[in-house]
Design a protein around this nucleic acid. Sequence first.
DNA 1: TGAGGAACATC
DNA 2: GTCGGAG
DNA 3: CTCCGACGATGTTCCTCA
Length: 894
Amino acid sequence: MPPDPIQVRYAGGIHLPGMDLWLDPHRAKSTAFVSHAHADHFAKHETIICSERTHALIRKRYGAPKSKVIPLAYGERYGFNEDYHLYLLPAGHIFGSAQIYLTRISDGATLLYTGDFKVRQSYSAELIEAEKADTLIMETTFGLPHFRFPPTEEIVASIVKFCRETLEENEIPILFGYSLGKAQEILAALTDARLPVMLHKTVYDMTTVYEQFQETLPEYTKLDFKAPGGHVLIMPPSVGRSQAVRRLRNTRTAMLSGWALQSSAIYRYQVDAVFPLSDHADYPGLMEYVARVQPKLVYTLHGYAAEFARDLREQGTEAWSILTDNQLDLDLAVDREIGEIRRDSQESRVDCEVAVLSDVSQAVAETTGKRKKTELLANYFRTLSPANLQRATLFLSGKIFIEPTQRRALGTGWAVVRKALLKVSGMNLARYRDISQAQSDAGRTTFLVLNGVTRPTAVSLTELEDVFVSLANAQGPVAKNEIICDVLGRLHPSEGRLVVQILTNDLRIGLKEGLLEEAIAQAFEQPVATVREAHMLLGNLGQTAAAAHAKTLNTLSLQPFTPVKCMLASPEPTAVAIWDRLGCESNEVWLEDKLDGIRAQFHCVDGRTELFSRDLRSLEGEFPEVIQAGQAFQDNMVLDGELIAYAEGKKLSFFDLQKRLGRKRLNGDLFFGEAIPVRFVAFDLLWCNGHSLLKEPLVERRRLLDELDLPEHFAIVPVEKAANADAIEDAFKQARLRDNEGLIAKDPQSPYALGRRGKSWLKLKKAMATLDVVVVYAEQGHGKRSHVLSDYTFAVRDTETEQLLVIGKAYSGLTDVEIEDLTEHFTKHTLGKSGNKREVEPNVILEIAFDSINPSKRHNSGYALRFPRIKAIRQDKTIDDIDTLANVRKLAEG
DNA sequence: TGAGGAACATC
DNA sequence: GTCGGAG
DNA sequence: CTCCGACGATGTTCCTCA
């Protein structure tokens, strides 16, 4: 009578309930077997069983673990408890990697768990050993029959050939392989070739550990970015996109991975070559291994687990994927390490317009270098019909609507999208969080969450546009959620990723509008400047692309009721600086008060009037009285100006004006009763009675502006002319007395530069006193700051209660280095955590600059700062030196 | 019904 | 609005 | 020099949930 198999279950990791032992669990457990030293297999378990070599690697890499470690030599028998004993066998994956062999003493039942393994002899890892076992739990990363690696010598020979040829052409070969295991395997494999090798720091560090156990490594040096020439560089894939590596010229890159067998690999890794050097077993290897173990029952996991299990069953061995549903957890960790997407579901990909667009987007994201990006895009643009060209350029610029004036918000932020992703994938929130935290990249997260759960169909760009429009029209998150679920369910994860990126307005593919302009110019052989100009005039890349395609760019001009991108001013700290920049040219600077309102463009032709905001939105609903009053203008014109809150004899501020922003409903009494009165103060004239004035100098535009008869609610900003820095300084003081922010200085000879933050308009703002505050909370940032604590909440002291009261947050003003230093500091001085926010010891003093202090409900000090920025980290000060609430109050009132 | 959150837009 | 960083 | 990303406060709207 054969014994019952040792019970196995899966619960976020493999668990053997009979002995309460976990095998390579992702999260910290009481007792766990750690098969090898890759980071994803190593959590803070209370007790860790691992090979003594793995233990050495872990110690070197992460320092001595706090866990209790039971290091075992291969074959060393260990009595786990009264009923179970175990020993480890080499797994051949990386140095020190082990399988675990368990025996239940009472009935002799046995179980073998492989961890990651390889059957072939490798250069840097022990040769695998197999033993007969009743139950086998094995990894099946390459569990499809077509994964057959060529003989290792052939692979190595081709790698060496690649390196030699690259060096002969005076270029630098770069080999990408994971810093622990793969990199040393490559290094060892290169021994006979006698090529000079440089190792990236992370690889170098791990290699020094290897060296203690291995005599056959060739000579190597640490990567010197200044003189890499003539060397073979080995580095982990993750640093391949780093600045330092990108800066290296004349490189040829190669990825070393089992996935190289797939034809899409070169494209996916964005390298010049791929070689199938793997530390996993290929399909024949997996089969051979099963034959050696002769198991009665097999559980498979990782990669093509279900497929491989099916193949085994067909051969008469009972085999099951341990739980396809849970694969992601384990695969994910590996993905993160080696920068791969495990399951390549290209086969299920449907060739459609959206798929092509997402490929282009992905390629742009992965391409470094402007020229390559624009060329890629230009080639793509040329293949599109005019209508699809509009859509594609819009979507790639993260926009949705072709007509700028019909632009509406989608109302789909991360909250809505996350809900939809959970629904489509059936994933629970905890797992989703794991993925999103591990990735800290919205696109990759989306891909992984959707991977394998959607039924891709062909979707055209028109259909996608329809989805966006219906999203904009849908009312409420519930309705939007449904639409998103529907479209994601019909898309391949690669396409789903793009759609989510567009929905959340977070494309992040290193594609700015400027680059798209260049691509459009290149695609249709137009000068970039012309395309750019057209974009400013049309306010929309879709239309710009269409015009470039139709070769009608030159016929474009400023048209009333088509808002244009407005000219902006650059900040300048002092009057002297302004004079230096503008004065020398024409010996005169024109000064206007910098009004604190909202920028607006007023269009008027024959009594029809329109008002647009700075980003070309119609302000129709918000300021109807201005639009109405403007109908009294006798002339046809386009004005540039500022909408301000204004009442005779009463000081009104931006704060007052904000109450009217974003309003959809204006009750009757809103502007006749208590409403904040408003006026449009013009400072420029862009078009007048049929003529564009953009190219005219400011003097001329202003002359015409001054001739206009102004209706109610309209005014023109006064100009003062200054002939030296002192006069500017003086005017600045006057402007402040008038409660304005400061000055705008203009070159009277300058044309109107659409959309430019140029040097013809400069702004001088008032600098307030600064505040010394202490940081009380620190938070993780986003995007490129997702790995640092870049968000600081700070407080002042209330001398009455001796409490620290929060007055604001800031990150702006610190350099990357300072943020890194502070991250380290706050990590060490954390008092408590809730979510991403951590309370920190109040021992970092910041000097904060700001524009004003206002009463606020947001922070418990009752005050908030406008435009807070960090001026300095005051290492010379302590918490005793920070500003007091009384001080703040004084500044707020003063 | 009212508080609270998300999304968006303005600076 | 602010700022630092990269091309 | 110019663009871009990653950040600040605050207002309204709209929806959800207790």
